[in-house]
């Protein structure tokens, strides 16, 4: 399990990285934390002809709050998010630091980055799920400049995204705080990618949900929102009954596939359970 040969290039800024992507052609790849890419290269399932190492672009490691929301630099590690829970930047975004703890393990989180996770686009990845849940904008930079893609439009299919070959993710923007949000997931072994993951974000006031968002991973090729269930939350009391009804609706609405980790029916069942659990946590915070 040794990777195939490639040429190595180090980028010192975003412009350099994007230029290298252009020059080195479409078999070139960026490497950030390497926590997904290198494993695939060791199996020779990925054989980039060139790697552009973006780890030294320290300018992309930040958590910043401004009028438009919370901005997270693409190279910010999972661990940085996890351990920034009490900072001002993350006020109202506790769900992010909680969710980070579900990602792999400590030594994975110290290396892996939020940008890499979004680019890798695993359907049960915590960041992908939360990006979809919280209507994040994925800010990407190419030769011609910067553009912003809504998370809902970013994930196209299994490990494929709206990212063009010569583009780089530079930032994830979370537009609004989510004080009543939570994520719940199930894997047989703690730290593994979830079989199914559910995340919810509730707008609650005086015991009533004015609105709510529900996102699921592991029930489709990409993380999805479940409008059929979200509509049941609107204007409903924030009670276990409401959450159960929404969870039931979500389970009925999704069309999961079957694989070695569980068939469609099982995934539906997990989706229901995990939505209920996430809702219960969301109103507890």
């Amino acid at each position: 399990m040794k990777p195939a040969p490639f040429t190595y290039h180090r980028a010192h800024d975003v412009r350099g990285a994007v230029e290298s992507l252009h020059e080195l052609g479409e078999d070139a790849k960026l490497i950030a934390g390497g926590q997904s890419l290198v494993a695939m290269m060791n199996f020779r399932l990925a054989r980039p002809s060139a790697l552009i190492d973006v780890n030294r672009i320290d300018a992309l490691r930040y958590l910043r709050r401004d009028g438009e929301g919370l901005r997270i630099g693409a190279l910010t590690t999972h661990h940085t998010v996890e351990s920034s829970g009490s900072t001002a930047a993350l006020a109202g975004f506790g769900v992010l630091s909680h969710a980070a703890r579900w990602i792999g393990h400590y030594p994975i989180r110290t290396r892996g980055t939020i940008g890499g996770s979004i680019a890798h686009a695993d359907s049960t990845a915590e960041w992908c799920l939360l990006a979809v849940l919280l209507d994040a904008q994925i800010v990407v930079r190419g030769q011609v400049g910067e553009r912003s893609v809504a998370a809902a439009d970013f994930f196209h299919g299994f490990l494929t995204t709206a990212l063009e070959p010569e583009e780089m993710i530079v930032e994830i923007l979370f537009p609004r705080p989510a004080p009543h949000a939570a994520l719940s997931e199930f894997a047989q072994r703690k730290g593994d990618f979830a079989i199914v993951a559910a995340a919810v974000d509730l707008d609650v006031e005086d015991g009533v949900c004015s609105a709510g968002r529900i996102a699921l991973g592991g029930v489709d090729a990409v993380p999805i929102r479940v409008p059929e269930a979200e509509s049941l939350l609107q204007g409903a009391p924030a009670t276990a009954e409401t959450f159960r009804a929404a969870a039931d609706a979500a389970a009925a609405a999704v069309e999961p596939g079957s694989d070695a980790h569980g068939d469609a029916d099982y995934r539906r069942g997990l989706a229901r359970t995990l939505i209920e659990r996430a809702c219960a946590q969301a109103i507890a915070v």
Binding site: Q188, A251, H261, G262, D263, D265, Y266, R268, G269, R272
Partner: peptide, 12 residues
């Protein structure tokens, strides 16, 4: 297997 237990218990 958890999915088998779930199924044995009547699924959903």
């Amino acid at each position: 297997r958890p999915d088998a237990v779930h199924r044995a218990l009547g699924g959903n």
